[in-house]
Computed example of a mutant assay.
Amino acid sequence: MKLKKFMFMVIMAALAVVLAACGGDKENSTETGNKGAGESRTFKISHVVQESHVWNATAVKFGEELEKLSNGRMKVQIFPASQLGTEADMVQQMETGAVEFAFLTNAYMSTREDSLNSWFMPYLFNNLDEAVAMRESEEAKEMLASLSSQGLLGLDFMFAGNRHVLMKDGFAETPEDLKGKKIRIIGSPAMQSYWEKVGAGPTAMPLPEVYTSLQTGVIDGIDIDLDALVTEKYYENAKYLTLTNQMTFPTVIVMSQSVYDQLPTEDQEIVKQAMKTAVDWGVQEAVAREKANLETLKSAGVEVLEEIDTTPFQAVSNEVKKEFSDKSEIVKSFIETVESK
């Protein structure tokens, strides 16, 4: 009996040593695994355009960069074409942290932040390259910083191209060609003001309604960028495209501030670096697509007027610039910076 009791005590003591050693190894492993790294997670990204659009391609690129920089810990799931609701819904979801990232149209966001109307000042940019160059400007950084009051972290601006006019009947060379015409716009204070002053009837409507509205004659034309024109196939219902270049069209890339604040510092830096790399790639892709999309439209039988004299639009342009410069010092400074180059 004594021998059995002695052997039992020896076995229990040995077992305790083994368990202690295993516990120590586990503790050391946990500490090593957590050094400078956050948890594995999948972020949700929402936007309004189709999967073939350059904004979605940029979101995909961001996911690739994020996964690479985080050694696979961080991934993204993209919800295109308003799958999670309207842009107002997206902002609300970001406020609660239900969605972490969004590519929001500058048009919608300009209804929430006056300074974002800077991008929609008429005939400020001759081409997309000039607009892209202002992405790194102090004014652009101020615009992004202003979004913090809405619980959003402004990360960057990405572009779809400049805005042009597609009409069912004839080109848009002068304000007279547009007078009384129902032109679909995406809701924005600056866009609304411009088209009203031109003499057209600006009609705000979401993308999913535009195709049938053109088809049935509810609208006479649209204010559109070439990438959306190609991906949404609006040219099937209207054949006259005037390259007016009256405005550029960015997306404002934002992240939920509350989600960002919860990330470890290293992960915050990974997010910012991955997004910058993705947008650096995306803006060049947008410039390349501007040319490729034009060729696609010509091949599809669209009549294209590539150059117009913008002088007849100058008076309206000046009125809009003054209107919004009076509302925002950032808008005023943005215009001055571009026009001084």
Rank of each mutant, 00 (worst) to 15 (best):
L3H: 04
K5T: 11
V10L: 15
M12G: 06
A14W: 09
N28F: 03
G33Y: 14
G38M: 00
Q50F: 12
V54C: 08
A59Q: 09
A59E: 13
A59S: 13
G63D: 07
E67D: 12
L69D: 13
L69S: 11
N71M: 04
G72R: 05
V76H: 03
F79Q: 02
V91L: 10
Q92R: 13
E95S: 15
T96W: 03
T96N: 09
L104F: 06
M109C: 03
N117K: 03
S118T: 07
W119L: 10
L124Y: 01
E139N: 11
A140I: 08
E142G: 01
A145I: 02
S149A: 13
G151T: 08
G151F: 00
G154R: 06
M158W: 01
A160H: 15
G161K: 03
H164I: 01
K179I: 06
I183S: 05
T231H: 00
E232L: 12
Y235N: 05
E236A: 06
N237S: 12
N237C: 05
V259K: 14
D261N: 10
E266A: 14
Q268Y: 10
A274W: 04
V279A: 07
G282C: 02
V283C: 12
V283S: 04
L294V: 08
V304C: 05
L305T: 01
I308E: 03
P312C: 08
V316Y: 02
V316H: 02
K321R: 15
T337W: 04
V338D: 05
S340L: 07
